[in-house]
Design a protein around this nucleic acid. Structure first.
Lengths: 118, 118
DNA sequence: TATACTGTTATATTATAATATAACAGTATA
DNA sequence: TATACTGTTATATTATAATATAACAGTATA
């Protein structure tokens, strides 16, 4: 799901955009060959300047996720095949966590720390 | 665990520092009253300039996590009590994911997307 | 009291991120 | 072929992040 960038998160806007588009590809919401919204539409969707959109798209191009055709649009190049089981494991975990009294930010901090140290 | 900042992640160094220290407090590795390493030691631990350390500590002070005494040091102010069960849920999830063939970065992207949309 | 630690304040410099704005160039189609 | 879409290139400006460096100020202790 493509949504407004969080301008207070501290994470650079162009990186948030890169992450959102990657997620769409990872989850299969954007498949190989699919066309992205136009750069001027993306500017509105993410609520940033057009140059910020271009910076993000440039990075995705360099990483081989998308390609562009002048005058036509941006298209998904790579289909990334993520194990459905992995998504299921994460869905289950998130569902359990949401039943508890923990916010997203705290959950992410713990997740990161546990991943990197155990 | 306090470790070197990742200078290529794109996330500002001072924020990475804030997150690492918060994690230590959240996981109980730094408890109320505990003294942090000196700013000059932290500079070495995180591999950044002293001003970057100070910026992070200032933020943690503003959020009420730590306090400082000139000439003495920085101390943990808040003890954050995180449900042990929550940590267990995350440990289990991470353990399952590490058995699969998924990297940290991809896992985080999916985690974020699932959390924000389901 | 001298010394070696603590934190604190300040200034200057460089790189990066984000914005605003304009103009150019290719494509599809009424 | 005119029009309205696409992407692309370029320039200038502002804010933020990070660095280097120096000097100041409080605390603990040999």
């Amino acid at each position: 799901m493509l949504r407004k960038v969080d301008k207070h998160s501290g994470v650079p806007a162009y990186l948030q955009i890169v992450n959102m588009i990657k997620s769409e590809i990872l989850l299969g919401n954007l498949q190989k060959g699919a066309q992205l919204p136009s750069v001027r539409d993306l500017q509105v969707i993410f609520d940033v300047n057009i140059n910020t959109v271009l910076k993000a798209l440039e990075k995705l191009k360099n990483e081989g996720y998308i390609e562009s055709e002048q005058g036509v649009g941006y298209f998904v190049k790579k289909d990334i095949d993520v194990n459905k089981e992995v998504i299921e494991i994460i869905r289950e975990c998130v569902s359990k966590l949401k039943n508890g009294r923990i916010d997203y930010y705290t959950a992410m901090l713990i997740f990161e720390e546990v991943w990197k140290n155990e």
